[in-house]
Deep mutational scan, measured.
Amino acid sequence: MLDDRARMEAAKKEKVEQILAEFQLQEEDLKKVMRRMQKEMDRGLRLETHEEASVKMLPTYVRSTPEGSEVGDFLSLDLGGTNFRVMLVKVGEGEEGQWSVKTKHQMYSIPEDAMTGTAEMLFDYISECISDFLDKHQMKHKKLPLGFTFSFPVRHEDIDKGILLNWTKGFKASGAEGNNVVGLLRDAIKRRGDFEMDVVAMVNDTVATMISCYYEDHQCEVGMIVGTGCNACYMEEMQNVELVEGDEGRMCVNTEWGAFGDSGELDEFLLEYDRLVDESSANPGQQLYEKLIGGKYMGELVRLVLLRLVDENLLFHGEASEQLRTRGAFETRFVSQVESDTGDRKQIYNILSTLGLRPSTTDCDIVRRACESVSTRAAHMCSAGLAGVINRMRESRSEDVMRITVGVDGSVYKLHPSFKERFHASVRRLTPSCEITFIESEEGSGRGAALVSAVACKKACMLGQ
């Protein structure tokens, strides 16, 4: 009897593995994704193909990295998701002549009506938060230079001027797309009239992360975010950046690689679950690469896999709870928690219980395998993109072996128990001629924006502006 049951459990697990095998990517698959990513990057950089390229390769006008001589107080704003952060950054000489960066910050959550109302409502709310922060720190009387981390696709015309191309991540505030974001912020500050600010720089969160990590390690020339969304930036040779005049030196390019796949480059790798996630998203047909990796989508992918296993009578005796059938019910943090389970399955059992399920031991094991399959594919897909960037940098610099540091931020990278190990191992397999160091950014977005502002202020002083 026991043997029969054991055989049935083994057969069930084997069927589960057959279904989950769809998520496995072979090294040849990853090399294919990497080569296609490089081709799209090239198209994004070139003037004649930029418009139709899915990977936009947006110039950021960040050319210099901090040298350690900029000092002063800077205000930093960070808008990239449902939370908005205001930070005071003091850049100065530390002990023994070292450079020191001290920060104080406060988080504000953005109400739904500000995210989806008008641009005026959104930026009025942001300036209200700045006003509140300055009151708390008794700094209303000071006109501070301000660095703005704005983590949406922007076409820069200068370091302090950028046109919002399109909202992502659930934002829909009308009247912002096609307009200068810094102008919208300046107008809102003017409307309030109770404080003055000098907006000197606007950067993407990947750029802010790279600059913040450069402060720790001067070989950091790539910034990457794996959180709600997924994106990367890197220092490109100016001669390859056709959208900006000049051939000397390097400029940081914001790849906006989340949109890779929007022209069909990933079609052969998309599964039924991916198509369902895409169809029910706020932007169907867009940001397809990001939807395979980002935390906004990972939990939902797992939920759809679990429903398939229920329908195949391989999980929960073929019956799903009402909660499990509800879109968004299986949160991405559950994926991390399930994979963090120590082996007694308590954590998995508790999560499934909150979803109205009474799982068996085998159910718990199957749910864990589903989570591992989805998150491992995410790590491997992400590795193909980064390997594409790094191999490109090595080739354009004609280096036999390139040493490089990548600064990384984002909740999936930082909080998932195995993502970074799987990701690092896969990147290294795909970049055999590179020695890569990964560092995690601390308060990256805010500190990085302030350091970019410090560079901009120093330049302005040198130019006598």
Rank of each mutant, 00 (worst) to 15 (best):
residue 273 Y to V: 07
residue 353 S to Q: 06
residue 412 V to I: 04
residue 146 L to A: 14
residue 245 E to I: 02
residue 457 C to H: 15
residue 411 S to N: 12
residue 291 K to T: 09
residue 145 P to N: 01
residue 107 M to Y: 13
residue 119 A to E: 10
residue 414 K to G: 08
residue 260 F to W: 05
residue 462 M to H: 11
residue 182 V to C: 14
residue 120 E to L: 14
residue 40 E to V: 04
residue 406 V to S: 03
residue 182 V to E: 15
residue 248 E to V: 04
residue 139 M to L: 10
residue 395 E to C: 12
residue 237 E to S: 06
residue 135 D to E: 08
residue 105 H to V: 11
residue 324 L to D: 00
residue 202 M to K: 02
residue 219 Q to D: 15
residue 281 S to K: 13
residue 222 V to H: 00
residue 346 K to T: 11
residue 380 H to R: 12
residue 390 I to F: 08
residue 167 W to P: 10
residue 222 V to W: 00
residue 265 E to S: 03
residue 419 F to Q: 03
residue 91 V to Y: 09
residue 401 V to N: 03
residue 368 R to T: 07
residue 41 M to L: 10
residue 54 S to P: 12
residue 438 F to L: 05
residue 339 E to Y: 00
residue 294 G to A: 12
residue 119 A to G: 08
residue 7 R to W: 14
residue 342 T to R: 03
residue 343 G to H: 04
residue 375 S to V: 09
residue 5 R to C: 11
residue 138 Q to R: 12
residue 169 K to H: 11
residue 443 E to D: 12
residue 138 Q to C: 11
residue 79 L to D: 05
residue 125 Y to L: 08
residue 295 G to A: 14
residue 12 K to C: 14
residue 427 V to K: 00
residue 349 Y to P: 03
residue 261 G to T: 06
residue 245 E to R: 00
residue 235 M to I: 11
residue 216 E to R: 03
residue 398 S to C: 07
residue 382 C to W: 06
residue 67 E to G: 08
residue 315 L to Q: 00
residue 449 A to D: 10
residue 10 A to F: 15
residue 176 A to V: 09
residue 142 K to C: 11
residue 249 G to L: 01
residue 302 V to E: 02
residue 284 P to S: 13
residue 144 L to Q: 11
residue 402 M to Y: 10
residue 106 Q to D: 04
residue 76 S to K: 02
residue 55 V to E: 01
residue 128 E to V: 04
residue 230 C to I: 13
residue 162 G to H: 10
residue 89 V to W: 03
residue 205 D to H: 12
residue 393 M to L: 13
residue 388 G to Q: 10
residue 434 C to V: 07
residue 316 F to P: 05
residue 332 T to D: 10
residue 352 L to G: 01
residue 331 E to G: 13
residue 315 L to V: 10
residue 406 V to G: 01
residue 319 E to Y: 15
residue 105 H to Y: 10
residue 197 M to Q: 12
residue 218 H to G: 03
residue 369 R to D: 01
residue 148 F to D: 07
residue 75 L to N: 00
residue 5 R to W: 07
residue 371 C to L: 01
residue 39 K to V: 08
residue 51 E to A: 12
residue 175 G to M: 09
